[in-house]
Design a protein around this nucleic acid. Structure first.
Lengths: 136, 136
DNA sequence: CTTGACTCCGTACCTATGTACGGAGATTAC
DNA sequence: GTAATCTCCGTACATAGGTACGGAGTCAAG
């Protein structure tokens, strides 16, 4: 099912606006699509998945430049370049995970505290988050 | 050691600019500081930690509005409000962790593949990331 | 007690990431 | 085949999150 999509269909399928697709193309995040009929862009499902990936990565705190770096990992580099870049990104991702796990644990503790009605003046969310700082 | 900080010292200690501190104050992310001497703001170490938390949360994909919500957990609400807000944030944080773990695993697989010199035309980073989509 | 660094405030400006506009041409639905 | 819809392009505008400016007041070292 090699569905050919116009820009409008792609945008709808990916949950973004047409202008966003054009913007990503201009920014180099999407490859130049074929334009057989009259100059209209023709996209494939791979482009839709790529946009999904971009949007997901954004919610994880990567900016478009970071994301371009991640997407470059799919390119035709030598394996050593890819390897090093992947390792670097891996490091960043692991750090993000650690920081989020600390926040998750603090939130969980807070929820439990509230459920045990052990409330004092204020719930110690910032304190518990902030004291992770030395570790992170 | 209840160190009193001027805005410049605070900014330096927190690794941001003076204007950023003023901006956070205007945005309600930092409380109004005391201003005993001649109107100069006087900050404490709690403010420095708060800024660190804001910066850390930003790299995890929270925007300033999200962060204000997290910081509100430290406030003097009733426990039930705090509980519900914390649960909601907990959900978001867990989702972020899951997505990052998927990316981490894909990157790890990629690094291993490169190390085994099992390279084909392109490393399958996008494919492996993108195919998580159903799960996430 | 002067000089240089710091702070005040409001406002203007900047970058990243989109969003919208508008007029001309292509396509599709009737 | 014509009307509605879609796409083209360049450019302008919008929003979040800062960052810089400028002129006046304050503080601290010599």
């Amino acid at each position: 099912m090699k569905s050919r999509l116009t820009i409008g269909k792609l945008a709808e399928a990916a949950g973004v606006g047409v202008e966003t697709v054009r913007f990503y193309q201009r920014s180099g995040l999407l490859p130049e699509p074929e334009r057989p009929l009259s100059g209209y862009r023709e996209y494939t499902d791979a482009d839709r998945r790529r946009i999904h990936f971009i949007k997901r990565a954004q919610t994880l705190g990567f900016n478009l430049e970071d994301i371009a770096g991640l997407l470059k990992l799919d390119g035709p580099q030598t394996c050593s370049v890819t390897h090093d870049l992947a390792l670097e990104k891996l490091h960043v991702v692991k750090e993000k995970i650690d920081a989020l796990v600390a926040i998750r644990d603090a939130l969980q503790q807070m929820v439990r505290q509230c459920e045990r009605k052990h409330r004092r003046g204020t719930c110690p969310i910032i304190q518990s988050l902030v004291q992770e700082e030395a570790k992170i």
